[in-house]
Write a protein that binds this DNA or RNA. Sequence first.
DNA 1: CTGTTAGCGCGTTCAC
DNA 2: GTGAACGCGCTAACAG
Lengths: 335, 335
Amino acid sequence: MKTVNLKELAEQLNLSVSTVSKALNDSYEINFETKRRVLELASALHYQPNPYASSLRKQKSKTIAVIIPEIANNFFTLAINGIESIAQKHGYHVLIYLTHEDYNKEVEITQLLQNGRVDGILMSLSSNSTDYAHLQELNKKMIPLVFFDRVSDDFATARVTTDDYESGYKATEHLIEQGCKRIAHLTISKNLSIGKKRMQGYIDALNKYQIPLRDDLIVRCTDDASVNYVLIKQLLQRKDRPDGIFASVEKLAINCYQVCAELDLNIPKEVKLISFSNLETAAFLCPSLTTITQPAFDIGKEAAYILFEAIKSKKIQNHSAVFKSALIKRKSTGC
Amino acid sequence: MKTVNLKELAEQLNLSVSTVSKALNDSYEINFETKRRVLELASALHYQPNPYASSLRKQKSKTIAVIIPEIANNFFTLAINGIESIAQKHGYHVLIYLTHEDYNKEVEITQLLQNGRVDGILMSLSSNSTDYAHLQELNKKMIPLVFFDRVSDDFATARVTTDDYESGYKATEHLIEQGCKRIAHLTISKNLSIGKKRMQGYIDALNKYQIPLRDDLIVRCTDDASVNYVLIKQLLQRKDRPDGIFASVEKLAINCYQVCAELDLNIPKEVKLISFSNLETAAFLCPSLTTITQPAFDIGKEAAYILFEAIKSKKIQNHSAVFKSALIKRKSTGC
DNA sequence: CTGTTAGCGCGTTCAC
DNA sequence: GTGAACGCGCTAACAG
């Protein structure tokens, strides 16, 4: 079937293309009766305007991009949910891109978005991003950018995060209150502010309770899961193995479970574990894991909201929002 | 910063717009030296072609849409991963749309895609879709459509699924082998083939082992979680409560966990549970849940692959692929 | 090999 | 109130 366009409608109605266009856009110039006729035929023929012609003309794509490191992760999944709901409300379309924690891919993707494909970008940085020239480029092109969750302090733009420092502090404090003496911290990329802030919370909590900070209990994990696995195994095989672990991300907590299973270590009796996690279902199924849970859905919504504000006002805003995360204790668990 | 376009490049190089265009597209007509000059300036100025102008001209969007009922679901999450990887390989962009199991939204979304926004669509039906006029419309417009996972037998198009019948049979058989006598089945929408086929497997397995099929053990769940919760609670509060449950989707299994926790029923001692599930991490954390796991990533990849074949060949193919799912038993569990 | 011309489908002047 | 004409940025057909 031939796709129906303005010309087609105009011919059938004995009107000019521009009149039809105006009628469809509800212009005040057009006679009510004409509008009615146009709208009638349009809906009868299932007319849909060609989005790209319109984008080209209006220099507006009605599309945003979401760039995230991975999707098999409950936080991002919930955030997308929030983002999509706001986008749909604004009549916007959502493009999704995965970097797989690869900085080069992140650069590539942002390059694809340089020329009008999107009106704005929501982004969570990949863990090995250190240089931000690709983002400067977006800035120059006046494409609004909002960071969420994984932000960098080295690049100024609007951002939506959780209270990472406070959460890290509380998580550590919780382990201390459970009687842990040797608390390890599994951290990800030191470039990301979530890594830095959560760790600072850990450090300050230890200080507060006068527990010596031991560098050998801080495990700097990588973006390679198998490497992390080995690091965690080494940690748990030491004779003075930690009695508490604070994992900065869910994935590392899962790794702990795997290692503990292999080493026949009981969680939470022999090792207490606490982690950032949004895996609601897993947390439910697994009563021994106390989690720090972020309001991922709301974070997505807020980030989208800020982005649309920026798009509307045509100003790159430096708005920033911080959400509280919650420490969720599971019933019938020592931890 | 002004966005740089072909005209800009042409002026700076003292060439015509079309020559520049050809050079950038590596046309054989263009002199090597000219190409070099063009490419040099283009990269110096970070030239990126306007995708919508090109789409308009070529009538190709280099974009596909993925329409799914929800995203907070490990199956879809993994499938998107697979889809995105193939799309990226083909230089395609991925639009994502969530129907939230709402048929009307499904219709709305497909309408938005009628006029060239995408070159093809990947779709998992919402559970209450019964009418397919909106899909016929896509068909007429020659937009390739590939179903994955949630397909309908009432609409003919390419599809990628798992061996739902066989999986349902095996799941039920597994419970029988564990000694279950009263096996309940929690099913979703009867419109979807996954619902029908998994249930048929259940029925046939019972027959095979000469266990009477009891209609009161088949719980037809809805798309309203709170209703399902009540239904499951009623099921488990009966004096002749089931000793085994086969949940057709993960979400319903989670509901079972919640209800059992509330009723102080032990899983798997008092009630054995088996479910379709792709929640790898949960399955790991929860050794008492045996799962039927689908190769979601590969299903996504295959669906995308078929779609790109259709786009390339400009033929709407009726290719269909069936993947095996795996029954994954957890260690140290009676079920 | 390079340039000229003519749209892709739409929205916005500016005449009438 | 309506229509003719132009251009968004790019590509393709056709000249030269």
